[in-house]
Design a binder for these strands. Structure first.
Lengths: 212, 212
DNA sequence: GTAAGTTTCAAACGTGTGTTCTAAACGCGC
DNA sequence: GCGCGTTTAGAACACACGTTTGAAACTTAC
């Protein structure tokens, strides 16, 4: 057999990631996971300890690489003498784009999981991970201050807030308007297409002159 | 006793709305609802038929007024000879703002519920409600075409898409960056404050000249 | 080959779920 | 006061949940 299947732990993680984003934490049962992964029901509790710990493990596997990619983008950005707003925006978009196009790292699924878990306000994101990656927002705050020095701190914080919101939800595929239309009008789900329109949108909003 | 409590049906709806947004559909049990509402467990199935039907009822109570408020805003907008982008954006923001400040209509809770149910991709939003309010997106598409005639259709669709995304998530309180920081830096949760910064952000992004 | 350590397996545990049932209580026209 | 449709009450249903157990199967080292 050519398709040598990976070990139990990885199979559980892969299937969990997909099912958690599809049905949420509460809506995904260990029986669904173990059945689709082709492993015994007790395997989850054996390898991870509990359903909660499994959920956390699913996150830890993907989040650290994504964060580190962003931080190293910021590193190279800071070496430049005159960093642009566009460059700063791309420093977040590029890692998301990489992730979206790499199926071996979960593809676009993980961003959707992050988004879903965010609105579900799950304990893992509130307690376990929040303090662990506070560096992320500190670094980006400093970077925004550098490229948008003319804005006062409050206005800059709001624009940064809105920008991450629209970028994050674009990659997560959260199409608000799909509530009302059966067919996905615009979100062709092609990551490159998203960026092509997302980047100018965010940059335009960021560089607009401040209201007096 | 002065605090004459409303009838069983309303109490169930009020409590359900709050619990569904807090714990999600799967995470909210009928026992939680009926207990907090002070009604018998069987009351939900008697008055609504099933948990699914209750969820749908929670939506129908709030969604129609919100949509209709937006549509009537569009009506008055169309009477004006030269509608502005700002006016169009406000035609969506104003009803959201009204809703957010009116506790008797659920306050900001319902927008959060809408947001949560959207990412949960629940059947109710996918099947029951999508076709019912397709007029909403048609009307807004037409309005965007009127105020932004110089953009080609594709670019306009994307900008509209992004704009609804950032507006919707702002009112829903979906703070992406709160994953990484324990304290809510910016989202002071004051609806007027949100609009003060949200409106210029969206308008700037919408009116930016198209790339060649 | 055998022993020790690791992983898998089927079965069961206790608890909580949505839903249903039947009887009791209520509201109201007459 | 009586009768009838509506609502509420507690109890029970069958089922699914996360977790635990103890034995079987496998892997590794000597």
């Amino acid at each position: 057999m050519d398709t040598a299947k990976p070990d139990t732990t990885s199979r559980i993680l892969d299937v969990s990631e997909r099912l958690f984003v599809e049905h949420g934490f509460e809506g995904t049962s260990l029986r669904m996971i173990t059945q689709q992964a082709g492993v015994n029901l007790a395997a989850v509790n054996y390898h991870f300890g509990s359903k909660d710990a499994l959920f956390e493990a699913v996150f830890l596997r993907r989040l650290a690489p994504l964060i580190n990619a962003c931080l190293s983008e910021l590193d190279t950005l800071e070496t430049q003498p005159e960093p642009s707003v566009e460059g700063l925006v791309m420093s977040f978009i590029r890692p998301c784009l990489m992730l979206s196009k790499d199926p071996s790292r979960g593809g676009a699924i993980f961003v959707r999981l992050l988004s879903r878990t965010l609105v579900e306000n799950h304990r893992v994101l509130r307690e376990t991970l929040s303090q662990q990656y506070s560096l992320f927002v500190e670094r980006y705050s400093a970077a925004f201050q550098r490229v948008l020095p003319d804005l006062d701190a409050e206005e800059r914080a709001w624009r940064m807030h809105f920008s991450f919101s629209v970028m994050f939800n674009a990659f997560a595929g959260n199409d608000v308007l799909k509530i009302f239309t059966r067919s996905q009008v615009v979100s062709a789900r092609d990551p490159d297409m998203i960026v092509k329109h997302l980047l100018p949108y965010v940059v335009s909003a960021l560089v607009a002159p401040a209201r007096i």
